[in-house]
Write a protein that binds this DNA or RNA. Structure first.
Lengths: 100, 100
DNA sequence: TAAAAATACTCCATAGGTATTTTAT
DNA sequence: ATAAAATACCTATGGAGTATTTTTA
């Protein structure tokens, strides 16, 4: 699994639109659709409902939104922590982190 | 970031050998080396020390090992949770999960 | 010198893009 | 009829492999 999929999903979950999410992410709508489909296949569950004109989160999508946020935040923290430990070893204080 | 990188890292951290890890993962030693390098570049820190003949975890590697395990476990749980919610909606009880 | 990790390259798989079609209102 | 998502198909990037070189004891 790729963190990109979680990022794309969170963007759609926030915008409630594949097209808007794509613009925000500076990628094509196709790329977003493909990654969301891959993620849904992986989890084995529909995360977004595309019927009724408006895109909506499914119940599973709602819980997965919260969890995805936490997961990415945790990952970010873990990276920062590893850097901090590494830098702490030779006396240099820790720096800031960025999620790739 | 890809979860494959965490899985490869955990395998090397456990075996303390790129070659052994590669065998265990049924991939080439090259693939393991490349993914570990990519991960180290991403985190911005050396996770494994290859000097002194024996492969060892760096201090950063040690903390990242624990965190990687937790991260993958959390991801697995989140997938299972999403499935459970989805299946709970129409009354069918939740099934088991597997991490891709 | 031997055993293991790193490189150089090549090949294939997967992510991303454009153009188009389908779907829901 | 229209706006948005899905699909078909093509291209580009990144992952994996084989062969080889470097490194450390």
């Amino acid at each position: 699994m790729n963190t990109r999929q979680l990022e794309y999903f969170l963007a759609v979950a926030e915008e409630l639109s594949f097209t808007k999410a794509a613009e925000k992410l500076y990628v094509s709508q196709t790329a977003v659709t493909q990654q969301i489909q891959a993620l849904e296949d992986l989890v084995g569950v529909k995360l977004l409902s595309r019927t009724k004109k408006k895109v909506e989160l499914t119940p599973a999508g709602r819980v997965f939104q919260t969890e995805s946020r936490q997961l990415l935040e945790q990952l970010n923290n873990d990276f920062a922590h590893a850097r901090a430990v590494s830098e702490g070893v030779n006396g240099i204080p820790p720096a800031e982190s960025s999620l790739p």
